[in-house]
């Protein structure tokens, strides 16, 4: 911590907290129970405060990483598509193309543990056990060459011994000391002889096109409606009971976002952590080409399980209870209406 912030905080302690001591209270709220604090207070600090007991090895971490993380972060933590790379980039920070990873940029290992535990896997947050988080963290240390031994085991005992390479690469905000900061006079007239345009955004041409919106406005003005200007399509309840309830499907589309971290639908869908779900309603279980199903799922498909709405409903309610050994790590969806909405949405994905 910089000297200036320390001073600032000392001042706060004297001026601010002194006042707190005599502050008015209202007697609102209630005392938190220890179990409640323990459930939510999951943060971990660089000094190790907050770390639970546990351990995990590089090799255990590799298995978990490939299963739970690699679809976004790559098998070598190098990143996939636009998802973040987690390894590499050492020595790149002062280049034109800095690569900010755990090994090249992050100052503290506790941040890795804390973030993996609180927010990962993306779309299935807080589903990892402490030992799994230790293992993933150990694997990431190995992929970043911070530990070189693939037999390394990370635990709450040795955690604070590990220091990331860029720990000293940060300093407290000092913008107010920059030459730009002090008040100064500005020139108002005849400040330059000439000006020249040296760069144009048009040349890059990366601005999203909003012609559709403009056309929609023109169409509305002309008295005709276009799809872009309409509300999402809704239909009258159909006589045909197989007809899709578009309102329910729209709700399902919203709810499907929690599934989308692992499952893709639509034209360009491909298998990710989970298989493509196009046409899943009514098809055989375990039937998507190129997807590595669990043994039980493959067996179920072989013995004729069809994903009827009823079967999907039962599966979604509690995947692991429905099918012991499934790779789907999703915890399940208690709300029957939400399940119905997701199934309705899946019915629209032929």
């Amino acid at each position: 911590m910089s000297k200036s912030l320390k001073l600032l905080l000392t001042a706060a302690t004297v001026a601010g907290l002194g006042a707190v001591a005599q502050a008015q209270t209202y007697g609102l709220g209630r005392e938190a129970l220890p179990e409640e604090v323990a459930a939510w207070d999951i943060d971990v600090r660089p000094d190790g405060l907050g770390l639970p007991e546990g351990s995990g090895s590089v090799l255990e971490g590799e298995d978990i990483f490939l299963e739970r993380c690699a679809s976004c972060h790559g098998g070598f933590a190098e990143g996939a598509g636009r998802w973040p790379p987690l390894a590499g980039g050492q020595g790149s920070l002062s280049s034109d193309d800095p690569l900010k990873t755990i090994g090249s940029y992050w100052p503290y290992l506790s941040t890795v543990w804390d973030y993996v535990h609180r927010a990962m896997p993306f779309g299935d947050a807080q589903s990892l056990e402490p030992d799994e988080v230790y293992a993933i963290t150990a694997f990431l240390l190995y992929m970043n060459d911070v530990v070189l031994d693939d037999q390394f085991v990370l635990s709450n005992e040795n955690f604070t011994d590990i220091h990331l390479p860029n720990e000293d690469g940060f300093f407290m905000d000092d913008r107010e000391e920059s030459p730009l900061f002090p008040p100064h006079d500005v020139c108002m007239t005849n400040c330059a002889d000439s000006v020249e345009i040296v760069m144009r955004a048009n040349i890059l041409d990366v601005t999203p096109e909003d012609a559709a919106a403009r056309e929609a406005r023109a169409a509305v003005a002309a008295g005709t409606e276009t799809a872009a200007a309409e509300e999402p399509a809704t239909q009258e309840p159909a006589v045909d009971e197989n007809a899709i309830d578009m309102e329910l499907a729209a709700e399902g589309e919203r709810l499907f976002r929690q599934c989308a971290a692992c499952h893709q639908v639509g034209e360009d869908a491909r298998n990710r952590v989970g298989p493509i779900l196009n046409g899943v309603v009514g098809r055989h279980a375990g039937a998507v080409d190129g997807f590595r199903y669990s043994g039980p799922m493959t067996d179920a498909g072989d013995s004729g399980l069809i994903w009827t709405p009823e079967e999907i409903d039962a599966f979604l309610e509690n995947p692991r209870a429905y099918m012991n050994g499934t790779r789907m790590t999703y915890r399940g969806l208690d709300d029957a209406d939400d399940r119905a909405a997701i199934i309705e949405y899946l019915r629209t994905q032929e």
Partner: peptide, 11 residues
């Protein structure tokens, strides 16, 4: 991140 590879924090 600044040009020299060091970074300001708490800005």
């Amino acid at each position: 991140l600044l040009a020299d590879g060091r970074a300001r924090r708490f800005t």
